[in-house]
Design a protein around this nucleic acid. Sequence first.
DNA 1: ACTTAGCACTCGTAGTGATCGAGTGCTAAC
DNA 2: GTTAGCACTCGATCACTACGAGTGCTAAGT
Lengths: 349, 349
Amino acid sequence: MLTDRQKVILQVLVDDYIRSAEPVGSRTISKRPDMSISPATIRNEMADLEELGYLEQPHTSAGRIPSQKGYRFYVDHLMNPDNDEESSDVSTIRSSFLTRLDEMEQVVQQTATILSSLTNYTAIVLGPQVFTTKLHSIQLQLLSLETRMAVAIIVTDNGHVESRKVMIPEGLPPEALQHYVELLNRKLVGVPLHKLKMALHTEVADELRRYSEQFEGAMMLFDQMVEPTDEAAGAQKIYLGGATRIMNQPEFRDVEKLKPLLDMFEQTQKLLRMLEGTSTGGVQVRIGQENAIETIHECSLVTASYTIDGIPVGAIGVLGPTRMEYGRVIHTLHQFSSSLSHMLTQLYK
Amino acid sequence: MLTDRQKVILQVLVDDYIRSAEPVGSRTISKRPDMSISPATIRNEMADLEELGYLEQPHTSAGRIPSQKGYRFYVDHLMNPDNDEESSDVSTIRSSFLTRLDEMEQVVQQTATILSSLTNYTAIVLGPQVFTTKLHSIQLQLLSLETRMAVAIIVTDNGHVESRKVMIPEGLPPEALQHYVELLNRKLVGVPLHKLKMALHTEVADELRRYSEQFEGAMMLFDQMVEPTDEAAGAQKIYLGGATRIMNQPEFRDVEKLKPLLDMFEQTQKLLRMLEGTSTGGVQVRIGQENAIETIHECSLVTASYTIDGIPVGAIGVLGPTRMEYGRVIHTLHQFSSSLSHMLTQLYK
DNA sequence: ACTTAGCACTCGTAGTGATCGAGTGCTAAC
DNA sequence: GTTAGCACTCGATCACTACGAGTGCTAAGT
């Protein structure tokens, strides 16, 4: 276990390194106003901290920098509860959202942009999950008799509306459509979107078989209506804000370091995996190699989830170098997540 | 006017510089197999070419590099008609598209990705324009009586379907909705999407006033149905592919040069302005400062438009350094644009 | 009159060595 | 247990040199 003095030294060192991005020496620390011990003593303590794995030395005659373990300890036990002046953020956040928010997609993109500009790091936002949303109603609107085209309208219980073009199979009497839609609604309302397809083949198929005539055609139609939506549920929308802010960090001034990261930003799948496992509780911090994706082993990711009506539906995250202003970011993310939840809940009322 | 020999020298020099990204000296050129003149002569010619503005010298004792004017001349008069072996591209392109292409958005994104991987530069794709598409039909589907919500379904003449949630104003009898929709269809079918709103207030308003009762409410409803679509027409979808490929270019190995470019990639508006003015003819090349956007004054942009049923509906572009493999890119873009047009036309049959 | 060999000159790059200074670890004194 | 002192390490910086690619010019060759 660390002594109190070691903790103080570790904290001051991490704070300083986060600010300066330069290895911190013993003299620098001892010059701190509230530090009453000499550089030599600090040197001894630092040697101990290094032995314990909290610090690292880039080379023999340089200062120390925090190791991953050091950051972890800092985040868990040492971090300053942030300056309350920043609470003014709340109003900033709220007012930033005052602009148009009619479309889900815009809201999510806006969210990413604002979050990034607030933190000065890259922001990642995972759009509202369809996993938790259920079918509210399904409708079918004929477009044209000749081409047998129609539009299926799927309304979710949180008010989102999706529409898909479908083709009415040959031999299926258009007059029967109304019947079919009624059947679907009777059977499928309340089913979570991602289970729609399964429910279709269990719940609906049986009943449908009793009508018997045109069973094949109807199922083909239903599959069309449900399939794309199931797909949309799988392919979650994910948005980046301020992807290039990562370039402001001195640790990524080198293009070779930068490239894999920016490449990753184009791969939705990897981004998804990154946010995967965001707990529904408070704010989560993943430091360096704690991240599942190798590409960001020199980064830290701070995540939080947001809710609609108390139900977690998505995640927001901030990506920066391991040398990240954890205090400020965690604070911001905390407020942001609740602001966003509040806003979305209102929006879907 | 340039002599034949000057043209040859300019061509060889540009070819070499495009390949190597290093200033080209007189010896290098004279060593070319089909070059039968001495370095000294070439030096004299190069001095002349520099005086005429086709070449530049980074510093006194370096070789020459093409100036913007040099590139322009190269593209207009000297460029190799590309190796026909690459015509195999066509099949590559066609087969790349064989995967799922159900949704417009996916097609456009795919297009950008493929185009980028074919050229090894960054690709920019402007989704099908709504400017040229006309209204085919409009329908309204009631969602729920209590909340007075409905979905307006707008079908365009190229088969695209859009849907918007609308609120039915208080005091508007739901029974009358069918009437209204008929009126809209009678008056608005065939009107280009971006003129819908205008047409609503000229064509429809008059006729509607004769029904007189509920004029206000109905117009409010119509406005909702048309407004968002008009907006979507303005906010064109634009997609990037291989944004990070620009980092492979030696001229952008410096983060300071890179940042403004990548920043721009996040600004849809600027990207739009970039592609603005893409002619409907063949392939267009904009070199360096010929581009409207200052950020890409050190880049070249090769663009082409694509069509649906012969009508130009969007644009594709490739962005790289001024030292770009013009021949290959132009060739690829040419084939790509026709493949894409062909594919989209089929898709919307 | 054009071409070319020769040569002095320019200028960026790479390598070398000296110096500097921040920072350490250790020892000995407090 | 703390601290002052000191030798030592090692990266960063800078001046200096050598090198070489490439030029422009001049003068000789065709």
